[in-house]
Design a protein around this nucleic acid. Sequence first.
DNA 1: ATCGATGCAAACTCTTTGCATAGCA
DNA 2: TGCTATGCAAAGAGTTTGCATCGAT
Lengths: 136, 136
Amino acid sequence: MNRTTALDMLARKGYKITGKRETMAHIFWKNHRLLSARAVHNIIKVDSPGISLDTVYRNIRLFEELGILEATELNREKHYCFTSSDHHHPLICIDCGTVKKIEICPMDHMLDLPKGFLVTGHKFEVYGHCSDCHSS
Amino acid sequence: MNRTTALDMLARKGYKITGKRETMAHIFWKNHRLLSARAVHNIIKVDSPGISLDTVYRNIRLFEELGILEATELNREKHYCFTSSDHHHPLICIDCGTVKKIEICPMDHMLDLPKGFLVTGHKFEVYGHCSDCHSS
DNA sequence: ATCGATGCAAACTCTTTGCATAGCA
DNA sequence: TGCTATGCAAAGAGTTTGCATCGAT
Protein backbone atom coordinates (compact mmCIF):
# COMPACT_ATOMS: atom_id res chain seq x y z
CA MET A 1 0.00 0.00 0.00
CA ASN A 2 1.19 3.52 -0.75
CA ARG A 3 -0.18 7.07 -0.74
CA THR A 4 -1.34 7.08 -4.33
CA THR A 5 -3.04 3.70 -4.21
CA ALA A 6 -4.77 4.70 -0.99
CA LEU A 7 -6.17 7.90 -2.49
CA ASP A 8 -7.15 6.05 -5.66
CA MET A 9 -9.12 3.56 -3.60
CA LEU A 10 -10.97 6.40 -1.90
CA ALA A 11 -11.83 8.05 -5.20
CA ARG A 12 -12.90 4.81 -6.85
CA LYS A 13 -15.36 4.15 -4.03
CA GLY A 14 -16.83 7.63 -4.33
CA TYR A 15 -15.20 9.16 -1.30
CA LYS A 16 -13.74 12.61 -1.54
CA ILE A 17 -10.05 13.32 -1.63
CA THR A 18 -9.67 15.98 1.00
CA GLY A 19 -6.50 17.61 2.18
CA LYS A 20 -6.93 15.96 5.57
CA ARG A 21 -7.18 12.52 4.02
CA GLU A 22 -4.10 13.22 1.96
CA THR A 23 -2.28 14.28 5.09
CA MET A 24 -3.29 11.12 6.89
CA ALA A 25 -2.28 8.88 4.00
CA HIS A 26 1.03 10.72 3.91
CA ILE A 27 1.61 10.09 7.60
CA PHE A 28 1.02 6.36 7.26
CA TRP A 29 3.23 6.30 4.21
CA LYS A 30 6.09 8.16 5.91
CA ASN A 31 5.87 6.15 9.12
CA HIS A 32 6.37 2.46 8.54
CA ARG A 33 5.16 1.62 11.98
CA LEU A 34 2.06 1.03 14.04
CA LEU A 35 0.29 4.25 14.92
CA SER A 36 -2.66 4.74 17.23
CA ALA A 37 -5.28 7.35 16.42
CA ARG A 38 -3.81 9.60 19.06
CA ALA A 39 -0.32 9.08 17.67
CA VAL A 40 -1.52 10.14 14.22
CA HIS A 41 -3.19 13.15 15.75
CA ASN A 42 -0.03 14.10 17.61
CA ILE A 43 2.00 13.98 14.41
CA ILE A 44 -0.64 16.13 12.74
CA LYS A 45 -0.57 18.68 15.54
CA VAL A 46 3.11 19.25 14.84
CA ASP A 47 3.36 18.92 11.07
CA SER A 48 0.02 20.19 9.75
CA PRO A 49 -2.36 21.33 12.51
CA GLY A 50 -6.06 21.68 12.00
CA ILE A 51 -7.38 18.12 11.93
CA SER A 52 -9.57 17.12 14.82
CA LEU A 53 -9.16 13.84 16.65
CA ASP A 54 -12.68 12.88 15.56
CA THR A 55 -11.71 13.17 11.93
CA VAL A 56 -8.62 11.09 12.53
CA TYR A 57 -10.80 8.38 14.05
CA ARG A 58 -13.36 8.59 11.27
CA ASN A 59 -10.84 8.41 8.48
CA ILE A 60 -8.82 5.66 10.10
CA ARG A 61 -12.04 3.69 10.33
CA LEU A 62 -12.82 4.38 6.68
CA PHE A 63 -9.30 3.46 5.61
CA GLU A 64 -9.60 0.21 7.50
CA GLU A 65 -12.95 -0.62 5.90
CA LEU A 66 -11.47 0.00 2.46
CA GLY A 67 -8.50 -2.20 3.25
CA ILE A 68 -6.02 0.65 3.14
CA LEU A 69 -5.00 0.13 6.74
CA GLU A 70 -4.75 -2.95 8.89
CA ALA A 71 -5.23 -2.91 12.63
CA THR A 72 -3.47 -4.49 15.56
CA GLU A 73 -4.34 -4.07 19.20
CA LEU A 74 -1.45 -3.05 21.40
CA ASN A 75 -2.27 -2.65 25.07
CA ARG A 76 -5.86 -1.71 24.66
CA GLU A 77 -5.27 0.76 21.84
CA LYS A 78 -5.86 0.02 18.20
CA HIS A 79 -2.77 0.63 16.10
CA TYR A 80 -2.70 0.86 12.35
CA CYS A 81 -0.34 0.70 9.42
CA PHE A 82 -0.65 0.41 5.65
CA THR A 83 -1.90 -2.96 4.56
CA SER A 84 0.79 -5.17 3.13
CA SER A 85 0.08 -7.30 0.13
CA ASP A 86 1.10 -10.64 1.56
CA HIS A 87 0.12 -12.53 4.67
CA HIS A 88 2.72 -12.19 7.36
CA HIS A 89 3.12 -11.51 11.05
CA PRO A 90 4.78 -8.57 12.73
CA LEU A 91 7.84 -8.24 14.88
CA ILE A 92 6.96 -5.16 16.88
CA CYS A 93 9.33 -2.85 18.71
CA ILE A 94 7.47 -1.86 21.86
CA ASP A 95 9.56 1.33 22.13
CA CYS A 96 9.21 2.95 18.71
CA GLY A 97 6.43 0.85 17.16
CA THR A 98 8.51 -0.13 14.16
CA VAL A 99 7.24 -3.27 12.52
CA LYS A 100 9.38 -5.84 10.76
CA LYS A 101 8.01 -8.76 8.86
CA ILE A 102 8.25 -12.28 10.24
CA GLU A 103 8.80 -14.61 7.34
CA ILE A 104 7.20 -17.72 8.74
CA CYS A 105 3.56 -18.28 9.66
CA PRO A 106 2.91 -20.73 12.48
CA MET A 107 -0.34 -21.85 10.87
CA ASP A 108 1.74 -23.60 8.24
CA HIS A 109 2.92 -25.91 10.99
CA MET A 110 -0.40 -26.43 12.76
CA LEU A 111 -1.27 -29.94 11.74
CA ASP A 112 -2.66 -31.24 15.01
CA LEU A 113 -5.75 -29.10 15.58
CA PRO A 114 -8.74 -30.82 17.18
CA LYS A 115 -11.00 -32.45 14.63
CA GLY A 116 -14.12 -30.43 13.97
CA PHE A 117 -12.58 -27.10 14.93
CA LEU A 118 -13.21 -24.57 12.18
CA VAL A 119 -10.36 -22.07 12.12
CA THR A 120 -11.39 -18.57 11.10
CA GLY A 121 -8.33 -16.58 12.07
CA HIS A 122 -5.13 -16.38 14.01
CA LYS A 123 -2.77 -13.88 15.53
CA PHE A 124 0.97 -14.17 15.91
CA GLU A 125 3.02 -11.25 17.09
CA VAL A 126 6.47 -10.98 18.59
CA TYR A 127 7.34 -8.06 20.84
CA GLY A 128 10.65 -6.64 21.93
CA HIS A 129 13.20 -3.89 21.51
CA CYS A 130 14.69 -3.26 18.08
CA SER A 131 18.43 -2.75 17.73
CA ASP A 132 18.06 1.02 17.49
CA CYS A 133 16.05 1.27 20.70
CA HIS A 134 17.86 -1.07 23.04
CA SER A 135 21.34 0.03 22.11
CA SER A 136 20.64 3.65 23.00
CA MET B 1 -5.13 -23.76 39.09
CA ASN B 2 -8.25 -24.76 41.02
CA ARG B 3 -10.66 -23.26 43.55
CA THR B 4 -8.83 -24.46 46.64
CA THR B 5 -5.40 -23.39 45.47
CA ALA B 6 -6.78 -20.00 44.51
CA LEU B 7 -8.32 -19.41 47.93
CA ASP B 8 -5.16 -20.71 49.63
CA MET B 9 -3.12 -18.19 47.69
CA LEU B 10 -5.40 -15.40 48.85
CA ALA B 11 -5.16 -16.48 52.48
CA ARG B 12 -1.41 -16.94 52.37
CA LYS B 13 -0.97 -13.40 51.13
CA GLY B 14 -3.15 -12.00 53.90
CA TYR B 15 -6.26 -11.36 51.83
CA LYS B 16 -9.62 -12.29 53.23
CA ILE B 17 -11.65 -15.22 52.01
CA THR B 18 -15.03 -13.68 51.42
CA GLY B 19 -18.10 -15.34 50.04
CA LYS B 20 -17.83 -13.20 46.95
CA ARG B 21 -14.26 -14.26 46.28
CA GLU B 22 -15.29 -17.87 46.74
CA THR B 23 -18.09 -17.37 44.26
CA MET B 24 -15.74 -15.84 41.73
CA ALA B 25 -13.17 -18.61 42.12
CA HIS B 26 -15.99 -21.10 41.70
CA ILE B 27 -17.10 -19.46 38.48
CA PHE B 28 -13.63 -19.62 36.96
CA TRP B 29 -13.30 -23.19 38.11
CA LYS B 30 -16.64 -24.27 36.62
CA ASN B 31 -16.10 -22.42 33.33
CA HIS B 32 -13.00 -23.57 31.52
CA ARG B 33 -13.15 -20.66 29.18
CA LEU B 34 -12.22 -17.04 28.76
CA LEU B 35 -14.53 -14.74 30.69
CA SER B 36 -14.63 -10.97 30.64
CA ALA B 37 -15.44 -9.06 33.81
CA ARG B 38 -18.92 -8.44 32.46
CA ALA B 39 -19.35 -12.12 31.62
CA VAL B 40 -18.44 -13.05 35.18
CA HIS B 41 -20.87 -10.48 36.48
CA ASN B 42 -23.64 -11.82 34.26
CA ILE B 43 -23.12 -15.34 35.57
CA ILE B 44 -23.21 -13.96 39.09
CA LYS B 45 -26.45 -12.08 38.44
CA VAL B 46 -28.12 -15.38 37.62
CA ASP B 47 -26.50 -17.83 40.03
CA SER B 48 -25.73 -15.77 43.11
CA PRO B 49 -26.77 -12.14 42.82
CA GLY B 50 -25.40 -9.42 45.03
CA ILE B 51 -21.89 -8.81 43.75
CA SER B 52 -21.28 -5.47 42.12
CA LEU B 53 -19.41 -5.09 38.87
CA ASP B 54 -16.80 -3.02 40.71
CA THR B 55 -16.04 -5.90 43.02
CA VAL B 56 -15.75 -8.25 40.08
CA TYR B 57 -13.20 -5.92 38.51
CA ARG B 58 -11.31 -5.47 41.76
CA ASN B 59 -11.10 -9.17 42.52
CA ILE B 60 -10.23 -10.13 38.96
CA ARG B 61 -7.39 -7.63 39.18
CA LEU B 62 -6.27 -9.08 42.50
CA PHE B 63 -6.49 -12.63 41.18
CA GLU B 64 -4.39 -11.65 38.21
CA GLU B 65 -1.75 -9.99 40.40
CA LEU B 66 -1.54 -13.13 42.51
CA GLY B 67 -1.17 -15.27 39.42
CA ILE B 68 -4.50 -17.02 39.93
CA LEU B 69 -5.85 -15.79 36.62
CA GLU B 70 -4.21 -15.06 33.32
CA ALA B 71 -5.50 -12.49 30.86
CA THR B 72 -6.00 -12.35 27.12
CA GLU B 73 -7.41 -9.46 25.16
CA LEU B 74 -10.28 -10.35 22.87
CA ASN B 75 -11.72 -7.48 20.87
CA ARG B 76 -10.92 -4.73 23.27
CA GLU B 77 -12.08 -6.60 26.38
CA LYS B 78 -9.81 -8.36 28.80
CA HIS B 79 -10.75 -12.00 29.24
CA TYR B 80 -9.54 -14.25 32.00
CA CYS B 81 -9.20 -17.88 32.94
CA PHE B 82 -7.37 -19.87 35.60
CA THR B 83 -3.63 -19.86 35.11
CA SER B 84 -2.26 -23.05 33.63
CA SER B 85 1.05 -24.38 34.81
CA ASP B 86 2.85 -24.62 31.48
CA HIS B 87 3.54 -22.21 28.64
CA HIS B 88 1.14 -22.76 25.78
CA HIS B 89 -1.08 -20.89 23.37
CA PRO B 90 -4.87 -20.96 23.14
CA LEU B 91 -7.23 -22.21 20.49
CA ILE B 92 -10.24 -20.01 21.18
CA CYS B 93 -13.84 -20.64 20.18
CA ILE B 94 -15.21 -17.23 19.30
CA ASP B 95 -18.75 -18.44 20.00
CA CYS B 96 -18.53 -19.93 23.47
CA GLY B 97 -15.07 -18.78 24.57
CA THR B 98 -13.86 -22.30 25.26
CA VAL B 99 -10.09 -22.55 25.22
CA LYS B 100 -8.11 -25.55 24.12
CA LYS B 101 -4.38 -25.83 24.41
CA ILE B 102 -2.16 -25.60 21.33
CA GLU B 103 0.72 -27.96 21.82
CA ILE B 104 3.32 -26.18 19.74
CA CYS B 105 4.86 -22.76 20.30
CA PRO B 106 5.94 -20.89 17.19
CA MET B 107 8.83 -19.29 19.05
CA ASP B 108 10.54 -22.66 19.02
CA HIS B 109 10.78 -22.30 15.25
CA MET B 110 11.81 -18.66 15.12
CA LEU B 111 15.42 -18.89 14.16
CA ASP B 112 15.67 -16.03 11.71
CA LEU B 113 14.93 -12.96 13.82
CA PRO B 114 16.84 -9.80 12.91
CA LYS B 115 20.15 -9.53 14.70
CA GLY B 116 20.00 -7.14 17.62
CA PHE B 117 16.29 -7.52 18.23
CA LEU B 118 15.67 -8.28 21.89
CA VAL B 119 12.53 -10.39 22.19
CA THR B 120 10.49 -9.75 25.32
CA GLY B 121 7.24 -11.49 24.52
CA HIS B 122 5.00 -12.99 21.95
CA LYS B 123 1.36 -13.80 21.31
CA PHE B 124 -0.06 -16.65 19.31
CA GLU B 125 -3.76 -17.34 19.27
CA VAL B 126 -5.99 -19.26 16.90
CA TYR B 127 -9.66 -18.39 16.59
CA GLY B 128 -12.59 -20.29 15.20
CA HIS B 129 -15.68 -22.32 15.96
CA CYS B 130 -15.35 -25.42 18.11
CA SER B 131 -17.11 -28.60 17.05
CA ASP B 132 -19.96 -28.02 19.52
CA CYS B 133 -20.68 -24.54 18.21
CA HIS B 134 -20.44 -24.92 14.46
CA SER B 135 -22.35 -28.18 14.29
CA SER B 136 -25.41 -26.73 15.99
C1' DA C 1 -25.87 22.96 -5.86
C1' DT C 2 -25.32 18.58 -3.75
C1' DC C 3 -23.96 15.43 -0.68
C1' DG C 4 -20.10 13.90 1.75
C1' DA C 5 -16.47 15.63 5.26
C1' DT C 6 -15.49 18.00 9.43
C1' DG C 7 -15.63 20.14 14.22
C1' DC C 8 -17.78 20.34 18.44
C1' DA C 9 -19.88 18.38 22.16
C1' DA C 10 -21.98 14.68 24.07
C1' DA C 11 -22.53 9.80 24.57
C1' DC C 12 -20.80 5.11 25.07
C1' DT C 13 -17.94 1.11 26.68
C1' DC C 14 -14.69 -0.79 29.58
C1' DT C 15 -12.17 0.06 33.57
C1' DT C 16 -10.42 2.42 37.73
C1' DT C 17 -10.82 5.23 41.98
C1' DG C 18 -12.56 7.96 46.30
C1' DC C 19 -15.24 7.58 50.05
C1' DA C 20 -18.28 5.80 53.44
C1' DT C 21 -20.03 1.50 55.23
C1' DA C 22 -20.21 -3.46 55.98
C1' DG C 23 -17.99 -7.62 57.29
C1' DC C 24 -14.07 -11.00 57.99
C1' DA C 25 -10.10 -12.31 61.16
C1' DT D 1 -11.69 -4.26 67.39
C1' DG D 2 -9.06 -3.26 63.34
C1' DC D 3 -8.41 -3.28 58.85
C1' DT D 4 -9.93 -5.15 54.51
C1' DA D 5 -13.76 -5.75 51.20
C1' DT D 6 -17.64 -3.84 49.10
C1' DG D 7 -21.16 -0.65 46.95
C1' DC D 8 -22.11 3.58 45.03
C1' DA D 9 -21.04 7.23 42.29
C1' DA D 10 -17.95 9.62 39.70
C1' DA D 11 -13.97 9.90 36.85
C1' DG D 12 -10.88 8.42 33.10
C1' DA D 13 -9.26 6.58 28.60
C1' DG D 14 -10.29 5.31 24.05
C1' DT D 15 -13.73 5.56 20.69
C1' DT D 16 -18.18 6.65 18.41
C1' DT D 17 -22.14 9.57 17.12
C1' DG D 18 -25.67 13.60 16.32
C1' DC D 19 -26.00 17.80 14.42
C1' DA D 20 -24.92 21.98 12.16
C1' DT D 21 -21.64 23.82 8.94
C1' DC D 22 -17.98 23.59 5.56
C1' DG D 23 -16.16 22.18 1.28
C1' DA D 24 -15.06 18.88 -2.74
C1' DT D 25 -17.09 17.47 -7.09
